[in-house]
Each structure stands twice: as structure tokens, then as C-alpha cells.
Design a protein around this nucleic acid. Structure first.
Lengths: 353, 353
DNA sequence: TTTCGGATAGAAATCGTTAACTATGAGGCC
DNA sequence: GGCCTCATAGTTAACGATTTCTATCCGAAA
């Protein structure tokens, strides 16, 4: 007689004891994959309700059943782009019957590694790394070895919005055309007559996102035969403050410019604020473009011309590819398109007297 | 001789076989909680590295060890306030050595219940429900029964940003002063001379967040002896479109108003856009206030007067209380303060002719 | 020399569930 | 009537790790 100590949660055995059957039968009633007499079934169900029994997912997982999990590893949860990618990841994971773990590393590579190790212990089916990463040699090397470790353990490293590690590395990669977007938006500015364009947000150490965006910026200049001067390349992070401060600095140093390409919309937003304070009109005096197309980009004043990233698709496709990687025909490397969204923060270059 | 089939992940037994010891010893070396000869230890460690072994968290959990998990259940991941609360939840969970599951229900109460059930199976230590909820009788009843179920299973229902279910219900509740914030910001408008204030975002069925905010709005009017007319109470959801459309409607219907209280900043943002289109100046002609203090509130034009919610604290405290609920002196019900942030979207009421 | 105890290591039980075997009775067929 | 099969339910092993409980060896104390 399995007397149930209060505080302990009931097990199949407890249910079985009450229903007067074996544990196997309880399991079969719940799974419904084996014939059970109707009377038995109802007795079991009554016992289940009486005890308010639920299976122990851990025990079930051990023996092979139960929902798998997918991990979503991100710098921070705040910030509009992570949320959208996360939305895509969570949606697709749920649609595929998986649970979704979330972890943040706040930009600390050590912490990122710890988290991945933890996910390996958790038997996670896929580990999605979101956003750009460092590009140092040692970091890439460690990532590569992690990809192999996860692969051996039946899991999968997924790089979302970050370039591939190499051809022989077992990882799923879903990128967006970061460089192309920067190229397009810069070309657009050049076509409007701008020749003195500042870029806010170069970074050190080298970051994949920055590199790609700056790369597109540079290529557009080259294609159209416009020279870039280093004074117009300003460092900074991805946040609003960076845009504000760097724009202030730009104005203070009296460097000539007719347009600003900001590395993110948040940076652009800071730039707009700084320009407004300085009495510089946008877009009459200076054009400003951002990158990301965050939800409020259209609500800034003036509304912001920017590059749209298919955030949610990025997350969704990442999960889909990773979970169905055994199916033939599913390429494990995918590049999604970006497109520029023209709003009111850009206009013809002021003809310099 | 435990020959390792490729594709299977290594177990303690495999490590033990290679190191020439028993599984027990491997476990002890890894846990470090029992004396093991130095030579044995190093042989085991070598085998661990050779196989790239990691423990199976599921198996470990079954026998009591391993990190616990908390679940974070939310309407959507996008939307600034959820991200911030999530950030708080994740941070605190990580700090307490817990993993963090995340699920979305898109406003579907059925789905919400399914998710909670799933979390109970997962032996989650705490289930955090974020944001307001429906206030229908049946919903509250089901929530109450869930609270008891989770409690019996050693888990904990946590209500974050939502009023308590009742005194005898085992749940942790962390609220913010929703009603007080609305009262304060409405009082502020009244003190500026506004007497004709519209509220955008009443909802049906009754939603806790809306109810509280509208409640504060109403109380402020009563306190200051100002009458509310139903025409100035407009329905709508929490998003930008709602604010835009309702403001358009308000203008079209030629209802007199000198100020708008929007149920969220996103709604306020839509209202600002509609007013701008109509050539109504803010704050000279009409004042606008929001609620939430989203990151870009300061970047709207004009910058938005709003009510600040301590989002991150909300999430952090929710987890802290839930995980340490056994410790005496920790109240399982907490109300955090809100405060209004005065920016440029509010000004004195235009003296009517 | 005998015995006691500390230092190590292994065997076996345990966690909760499922799945592969077994076992039992009833009913149909020759 | 004997045999075979189907329906149903129970036994037992397995999943991978931890944790008692034992067992051995060796040096020290008596």
C-alpha cells in the first residue's frame, strides 16, 4: 500500500495503488498507445484526478519521451531586435513541440561558454546563438570546438545573425544580408548627392555585425567612387547614448558631413537628439539613417530611414533548419534578405555653396 | 568493456570503463565530495576529457541534483515591457542558479493553461505569469486551482504585475502601483488646468491592467471634482495602431478635449502621430501622456510624459520572493511604486476662449 | 601479533517512467 | 475436447546518475 507522504508529489505507483492496477497500466492509460479495458481506464483516470497526478518530465525524458528543449542564448533580452528574434525562436520551437530555454550573457564570452556547456548537459536539441559575436581567433576556435561537441552529443549549434565558422563545422547558420543592407542604404544616400557621410559605431575588438555594416558602407563608397576619410568613422557601441555622444563630438570637431549612417536605429535616435539640440535640421541640413527598423523607427521625428531586418523569420527559420537537419534538401546555411525603408530622415544633400 | 556506439553520448559507465574504475568513482571525482586518490582522479579526468563527457542533467535531476528551472510565461516577447520584466526574471533566476524557460500564449487563456500544466510536468520551481490577465470569474477560479496544484507539487505560482487572487491562495504576487500611477499622471494634468481629458484604451472583457489605469484616471477626476463624460472614454488595445485610430476617431467626432491619457506609451505614440497629421500641436493645443516609460519615450517628438514602471525590479523581486518563500519575514505580496516622468508632451491647458 | 580505524573503491539500491517480455483467461475453430 | 489466438494486465529491465552500504588494504596502536 503506497501511502502518500504529503509534500511528495504522486507517482505512477501511487496512482496504480489507488486504482488497484500496476504502474504499467497507468502509464498505458495515460499514453493511450495500448489497449486497456474501459473499466480499468476509468478507474485509473479517477485515481489520476484524485491525486492531481502529472508525469515527471525528467523521468520521462530519461527514458526517451517527452518534449525536447531548445536554448536561446542572447546578449540581453532588452533591445528590440533580440525580442523579435526570440519571438520567432519561441514560436517555431513551440510549433515543433519543444520547450524554450532563455539565457543571457551580457556580452561576456566566458559566460557564453558556461551557458553552452550547461545546455549540453541539459540535452538541448539546439543551441541558438543570437546576434553578432567577437571575431577574435581564439573565440572562433572555441566556437568551432563547441560546435563539434554539441554535434557529438546529438545537439546542434545554430548561429543566428552571425557569419559561419567554416565549411567543415557542424552548425546551422541563418544570416541576414547585413553588408548588403548597409550597401543599399549608403548607395541611396550617395544617389541623393551625399559625398560626406559619417559612420557612427565602428567597434574594437572586431564585431561581426559592425564589420559587415561598415563593409557595406565602404563598398558603396568604392562602387560610386566616393572617398571615405577616417575622421568620419566614429567608434561606439549599439545604444542611444553612443549615437548622442558621437554626434556631439562630430559637431564639436567641426568635421564636415551631410549625412550620418548609424550602426543601429538606437544610435540613430541618439544622433537625431544631438542634431536637434544643435539646431541642425534633419533632413534639410543633414540626413540620418539607422539600421534594424525597430518598431518605433517610424515614430521618431523625423521618421527614420533605415534597413529592415526580418528578425522574426530569422529566429523561426533557425529553429526549423536545426530541428529538421536530417531531412535532405534543407540547406544548413541560409541568408535572408534585407531592404531599406525610406522615411523622412533622408533627403537631397544640401548643395554646398 | 563498454564499447561506445558512435552517436550515443558517453555515460559515466563509459568514462569508468576507460579509466578502469567504477561509475561510483567517476561520479565522486566529478562531484568532488568524497576522497579519491590523486592518481585515480587524474585517470578519470583524462577519460572525461577524452570522451568529452558531460553529465546528463535529466538523470541527475531525477535523483535530486542539478539546477532547478523557473518558467516565465508572457503574452508576447515583443513589446518593451515584457522584455524588461523578462530581463529581471532571467537575471535573478541565473543569479540563484536556476535555468529559465520562456513561453508565450498570445493572449489565449487556453494556451496559458496548457503551458502551466506543461511546467508542472517539468517540475518547475516557479511559474511566473507576467502582465495583466482577464478578470472573468471562471478564469480567476481556474487560476486559483492552478495555484493549489502547483503548491502541492512543490512549485509556486507567481503573479507579476497582476492583482492577487485571494488571501488563501498560495501564490506570490508582485505588483506595481498601476492605479496610483494613473492617478498621479491624471492629477498632474488636472493641476495644469485640464478639465477635458480623454482616455484611450478601455477594454472588454475586463483586463486587470486597464481596470487599474482607468481606475486611477477616474479617482483623480473625482478627487478634484472634475466630471468625466463617457464620450471621452475610448476603447482599444495596447498597441500603436489603437492610439492612432482612436485619436483619429476622437478628432472626427469633434469631441472636445485638451489632453489625452493613453493606456500605454505605444498608444500614446499612435496618438501623437494622429495629432501631428491633423495639425494639432502638442503640448500647445493638446497634452498627451502615456504609461510604461518605454526606452524610446524620451525620443518621441515631443518627448513623452509618462508613468515609469520598475519593470526589471518587478521580475527580479518576483523570482527572489518565490524561491525564498520558506524564509520567514519575506512577505509573499509586494507592491512596487510607480512615478511619473514629466517631459515635453504636457503643458498648461489652452485657456478656452 | 592482533586489532582498530582511516583512506579508497566497488556493489547495489534508488529516483519515476516506459517498453520489451510474460502470463492468464476467454472464445473460436477443427 | 484440445489448441490457437486475441485481449488484457503484470513483471522486469532499462534509462544515467547519485548515494548509501560494504569491502579491502595498510599502517598504527596495544
Amino acid at each position: 500500500m503506497a501511502r502518500l507522504k504529503s509534500g511528495d508529489r504522486p507517482t505512477v505507483k501511487d496512482v496504480a495503488a489507488i486504482a488497484g492496477v500496476s504502474a504499467t497500466t497507468v502509464s498505458r492509460v495515460l499514453a493511450g498507445n495500448y489497449p486497456v479495458a474501459t473499466s480499468t481506464r476509468s478507474r485509473v483516470m479517477r485515481a489520476v484526478r484524485e491525486l492531481d497526478y502529472v508525469v515527471n518530465a525528467q523521468a520521462r525524458a530519461l527514458v526517451g519521451g517527452g518534449p525536447g528543449t531548445v536554448a536561446f542564448i542572447v546578449r540581453d533580452l532588452v533591445g528590440p531586435l533580440f525580442a523579435h528574434i526570440g519571438q520567432g525562436v519561441e514560436q517555431q520551437a513551440t510549433a515543433e513541440g519543444r520547450l524554450c530555454l532563455v539565457c543571457t550573457h551580457h556580452g561576456d564570452p566566458e559566460r557564453e561558454l558556461e551557458i553552452i556547456e550547461l545546455m549540453r548537459q541539459q540535452q538541448t536539441e539546439a543551441v541558438v546563438l543570437v546576434g553578432g559575436g567577437m571575431q577574435t581567433e581564439s573565440y572562433l576556435q572555441r566556437m568551432t570546438s563547441i560546435a563539434h561537441s554539441l554535434d557529438k552529443a546529438g545537439s546542434r549549434l545554430v548561429l543566428c545573425g552571425r557569419p559561419p565558422l567554416g565549411d567543415d563545422v557542424p552548425a546551422t547558420v541563418v544570416e541576414y544580408d547585413n553588408e548588403g543592407g548597409a550597401y543599399a542604404v549608403t548607395s541611396y544616400l550617395i544617389s541623393l548627392g551625399h559625398r560626406e557621410i559619417a559612420f557612427i559605431g565602428t567597434s574594437e575588438p572586431v564585431h561581426t555585425t559592425t564589420t559587415a555594416r561598415l563593409g557595406g558602407f565602404t563598398r558603396a563608397h568604392e562602387t560610386h567612387g566616393v572617398k571615405i576619410i577616417p575622421e568620419r568613422l566614429l567608434p561606439g557601441s549599439f545604444d542611444r547614448d553612443s549615437g548622442y555622444l558621437q554626434t556631439k563630438a562630430l559637431l564639436a570637431k567641426r568635421i564636415r558631413f551631410t549625412a550620418i549612417v548609424a550602426v543601429t536605429d538606437m544610435v540613430a535616435s541618439g544622433a537625431l537628439a544631438a542634431l536637434r539640440e544643435a539646431g541642425v535640421r534633419v533632413p534639410q541640413d543633414v540626413s540620418v539613417v539607422g539600421y534594424d527598423d525597430i518598431p518605433l523607427a517610424a515614430d521618431l521625428t523625423p521618421s527614420l530611414t533605415t534597413v529592415h531586418i526580418p528578425h522574426e523569420d530569422l529566429g523561426r527559420i533557425a529553429i526549423k533548419l536545426a530541428l529538421h537537419r536530417d531531412q535532405h534538401g534543407l540547406e544548413q546555411r541560409m541568408m535572408l534578405g534585407t531592404h531599406i525603408v525610406i522615411r523622412d530622415s533622408t533627403g537631397p544633400a544640401k548643395s554646398r555653396k
